[in-house]
C-alpha cells in the first residue's frame, strides 16, 4: 500500500517572522505607542516635543537606529498580516488570494519603508 505523502508547507518561514513580530508587538510596540501619543500631545512644541525634527533627524541619519526602525516595521507588518491572513480562514475564506494580499502587502510596506529610509539617509549626506 503506497501512501501519498503530503507536501512540505512553506509556512515555517512566515511563522518564524510571525513569531519574531509577535515578540516585537508585545515588547516594543507599547513603548512606541506611548511615544506616538506623547508626540501627538506635545506637537505644539516643535523644538522640545517628542519626535521633534531634531530627534527624527537623529534617528534616520543614524544607520543603526534607522535599521532598528526598519526591523520593527518589517517584522510587525509580517506579523500583523500573517495573523490577518489566518483570520480570513477563521471567517471561512479559504483562498490563495488572501495569501497574496497579506504577504504582498507586508512586502510592499517593508520595501516602501526601506526605500524611504535609504532616500533619507542619502539626503542627509
Amino acid at each position: 500500500m503506497r501512501q501519498f505523502l503530503p507536501t512540505r508547507s512553506d509556512e515555517p518561514m512566515y511563522w518564524l517572522m510571525f513569531g519574531a513580530g509577535g515578540m516585537v508587538a508585545s515588547m516594543v510596540l507599547p513603548a512606541i505607542m506611548v511615544v506616538l501619543i506623547a508626540a501627538g500631545l506635545t506637537s505644539g512644541d516643535l523644538q522640545n516635543g517628542f519626535l521633534n525634527l531634531g530627534q527624527v533627524y537623529g534617528i534616520f541619519s543614524n544607520w543603526f537606529l534607522s535599521l532598528c526602525v526598519f526591523g520593527v516595521i518589517f517584522l510587525l507588518s509580517f506579523y500583523a498580516l500573517h495573523r490577518m491572513h489566518h483570520s480570513s480562514h477563521d471567517f471561512g475564506i479559504h483562498s490563495k488570494l488572501t495569501w497574496y494580499i497579506a504577504y504582498g502587502s507586508a512586502a510592499a510596506i517593508s520595501f516602501i519603508s526601506l526605500g524611504l529610509q535609504l532616500l533619507m539617509y542619502v539626503k542627509f549626506f
Binding site: A25, L29, I32, M33, L36, V69, V72, I73, L76, S77, Y79, A80, L81, M84, I109, I112, S113, L116
Partner: peptide, 9 residues
C-alpha cells in the same frame, strides 16, 4: 498593530 505600522510608515 498593522494600523500602528502604517502610522509610522
Amino acid at each position: 498593530a498593522l494600523f500602528a505600522v502604517l502610522e509610522i510608515l
